[in-house]
């Protein structure tokens, strides 16, 4: 069964001149359980809007979204879904531990259990030694790990990622890809990953969906059958990326 199912979704945004901007046109998307699906497209193709629609932050004008087979409007278990943004969005007045705990505070998890799960999750992303560090004391890669831990601490079933590593150095980005794949193997969540980087999509995803802009529509869906771990510099990855880039 698909964990996320997007069915002929269209979205318009009102513009200042009274016209409306057609952002998404008839999008169909199927994310099977425990899959990693990457949505690739140039900027302005509506990929973030699509993610916001899946997250229930934006309502589509046409079509609908099903989460675990339940229509989004009737879906209640929103806390089984977390969202990782392009910026790390760490609260500067909170330590790493407190930032990770943020996800559990909303869910009303009791304090002792909260502490235990935060410690566990920080260890999972390799940041045990930095539990009490403030964001400004951490490097970009570490901040990214804290943000990842914050979206994992609620043990989500669905993880939505909006270009979360695009601002990192290439070598650190590769490390983060390995981390995501390792943790996904461990926790078994389903991931929808938005990126403009075709190589990143090929390295991570089981399935890549290419969006074209104005209005955003699905141009191509490509299964990636290469075995993990995938070396971003290998010829297989390069070939897949080349094929996908043609439809961008």
């Amino acid at each position: 069964m698909s964990v996320v199912k997007v069915q002929s979704v269209s979205k318009w945004f009102p513009r200042r001149d009274g016209e409306s901007l057609h952002v998404l046109q008839n999008i169909d998307l199927d994310v099977p359980e425990k899959a990693i699906v990457a949505i690739v497209g140039a900027s302005g193709c509506g990929k973030s809007t699509l993610l916001n629609i899946i997250a229930g932050l934006v309502t589509p004008d046409r079509g609908c979204v099903f989460l675990n087979g339940v229509k989004a409007s009737a879906f209640e278990d929103w806390r089984s879904l977390t969202y990782m943004f392009q910026e790390d969005r760490l609260l500067p007045w909170r330590t790493a531990t407190q930032n990770v705990a943020f996800g559990l505070e909303a869910a009303g998890v009791a304090r002792p259990e909260r502490r235990e799960r935060v410690t566990e999750t920080l260890a999972l992303v390799g940041l045990s030694g930095f539990a009490d560090a403030y964001p400004h004391e951490l490097s970009g890669g570490m901040r990214s790990r804290v943000a990842l831990a914050r979206s994992l601490v609620t043990r989500p079933q669905i993880l939505l990622m909006d270009e979360p590593f695009s601002k990192l150095d290439p070598s650190i980005r590769t490390q983060m890809h390995d981390e995501v794949l390792r943790i996904k193997e461990l926790m078994g969540m389903t991931i929808v990953f938005v990126t403009h980087d075709v190589e990143e999509a090929v390295v991570l995803a089981d399935k890549v969906v290419v969006l074209n802009p104005r209005p955003g529509r699905v141009r191509e869906t490509q299964e990636i059958r290469l075995p993990y771990p995938r070396d971003p510099l290998s010829p297989d990855v390069a070939e897949q990326a080349r094929l996908l880039r043609r439809s961008l």
Partner: peptide
């Protein structure tokens, strides 16, 4: 930017 920590005891070098 410092390297990703290998050991938990790695110091934070913020430059």
């Amino acid at each position: 930017m410092s390297a990703v920590p290998v050991s938990p005891a790695a110091p934070v070098d913020d430059g």
